[in-house]
Design a protein around this nucleic acid. Structure first.
Lengths: 341, 341
DNA sequence: TTGAAAGCGTTACCAT
DNA sequence: ATGGTAACGCTTTCAA
């Protein structure tokens, strides 16, 4: 059932029916009710492509995942972010389109999405420290919001980010307060801006405590379980092994724990583990835990915020770049952190 | 730059330019080259909405996530599946659209997607044991593929599934062989078909070994870390606690491990833990581990397969329902499983 | 081998 | 308050 058929069935013009359905004020209230009833009865829904062609709006937000970001994708925080974003989109009648490109051809994908008229706005995830995609998107003139920041980009752009530096700094400080001196960092790929910031926070805390950083205790790679496992395993074998491990994601944390177990050690007794991108908020209920950081829920919140910011930009093209920095809550489980050193 | 402008710039008709760009055979080779060169130079891309309107095809596959499936979403396997599917879509020029609905209004969302002409096909994830959405989609007449099966649906439909029953049966058998008699199952919500199958496999292995199932050792809930934590914590407090825990996801596994640590116990010594939806394939390299199950990569494979099956159905409407059952590989880490009992 | 024109299903402008 | 019609940008049929 299309508009033509519906209007014929009603004995009205397409114009009137369209107006009635789109809430235009000039249509007679009785007519509107009649039209709405018929639309419901015939299960009429306007064709989105025709509508988009006529209005010039797609009501779609574009996301791109590339082969190289696949591990990032598989990271649970990707799902959390998407869950939040999609929810935010839905609130305003938008949906999300996801495209996949090999390698780092994302810029081409963005350009095509825009010139094909597929999207009204774009979300960029996991920017690098120096990310040309941001300038490319600016040049395209399409509204976009970055989840995260790109340190080396000086021109203004819109972003929503979690304060990763502060989270890691606080987590490290917390371990230092417990008496740890040998604290390992199992970080993500440090081309990624958020990973670099995490490292900066870690280093800052060490410096403030007068602890010299040790390269043997710092790793950086794709956040997989195997990476967490190998990194922790290797570190635990050195002469002066870490007594605490700070790891960036749920996934790598699982590998870290497995490596500790395999080394015959006990998590929380021999080695402390703090995991970012983890949801420990439940530990706050009725347990005497020191409060510190959790971000799975922050990431979902970030998704919702990105959606709202982007849609605001789309529907109000005059408003300039906006930014938003979220503080992650830090929660550390007692047994996990209170190691004997 | 649109077709009209491009053809004007070339001094050709829109028809010819369109034909040249879409690989029609009747166009002069010299003309085609000239057109292609110009299209590249002017950065011309056909408007997808106009193209879709003219061809009647959207080149888009629809996914829906509902509020109630949010925890499922956040489950890393969602990301794995999506990564595989999107890749499969891209291979054939399709992209993925994701819509969000509150509660269980998914059927409405599917209907709207189809009648709005937004999609050429639909993917249904995490079906329930008795899932009306399958019949609804069949009624809509839109090509669709289910990731998973719905036991109580008898009419034929297309699906791709992992053999969850066998995986859990084998994992349980493995624990029994190690001498465990008190084996706990921390399962997903058993309305979900795959969770029910997992439980069936677990029960089958117990029965084969003559072990009476104990309700105190079986839990079923949303796969979150807090759930894994509470379930394991409570079980470890009972009189005759489990010596092994079989858990269904990465996320809950982290809670389980934390609970074990908090109870002053050691994973792999006091309590064995086997996690499904986990990628232990790396353990196969150079380590003497008993081989058993892993599914994160299987899930990605399933995504690719769903994409290919669906696109085949879309482009060849005559082919009937297809099905595909994948066997998950089972890998159990040595330290994890070889507990002292 | 090329082109003119109709059609896809809407919205929006201009009349009435 | 309602209707006729052009326009959105492409594909496809029919003609040349």
């Amino acid at each position: 059932m299309n508009l033509k058929e519906l209007s014929k069935a009603l004995g009205l013009s397409q114009t009137t029916v369209s107006r009635a359905l789109n809430g235009y004020p000039e249509v007679n209230e009785a007519t509107r009710l009649r039209v709405e009833e018929a639309a419901r009865r015939f299960n009429y829904r306007p064709n989105s492509r025709a509508k988009g062609l006529a209005t010039g709006r797609a009501m779609v937000i574009g996301h791109v995942i590339s082969a190289s970001s696949q591990n990032e994708m598989v990271n649970p925080i990707f799902g959390d972010f998407v869950a939040g974003a999609v929810r935010g989109y839905a609130e305003h009648g938008y949906s999300m389109i996801v495209e996949y490109v090999e390698d780092r051809e994302e810029t081409t994908a963005y350009r095509n999405m825009v010139s094909e008229g597929k999207v009204d706005g774009i979300v960029l995830q996991s920017p690098n420290v120096d990310d040309p995609r941001i300038a490319n998107l600016s040049d395209l003139g399409v509204p976009f919001v970055v989840h995260g920041r790109s340190s080396n980009v000086t021109d203004p752009y819109s972003w929503v980010d979690v304060n990763n530096q502060r989270s890691f700094q606080r987590a490290t400080e917390f371990l230092i307060e417990l008496g740890h001196r040998r604290i390992a960092l199992i970080n993500g790929v440090e081309d990624l801006d958020f990973a670099r910031r995490r490292r900066a926070g870690y280093l800052q805390a060490l410096e403030d405590a007068g602890i010299a950083p040790d390269n043997a205790l710092m790793r950086s790679d794709e956040m997989t379980e195997v990476y967490g496992h190998h990194a922790a395993r290797d570190m635990l074998r050195i002469d002066n092994p870490p007594t605490a491990i700070l790891t960036a994601s749920l996934i790598s944390a699982l590998g870290v724990r497995r490596a500790i177990e395999e080394a015959g050690l006990v998590v929380g007794r021999d080695v402390s583990v703090i995991t970012h991108d983890d949801d420990l908020s439940y530990l706050k209920n009725g347990q005497d835990v020191p409060i510190f950081t959790a971000t799975r829920s922050s990431v979902r919140d970030a998704g919702v915020m990105v959606a709202e910011m982007l849609i605001r930009m789309i529907e109000n093209p005059d408003c300039g770049p906006q930014t938003r920095l979220l503080e992650a809550e830090l929660v550390v489980g007692r047994s996990t952190a209170a190691a004997n050193i």
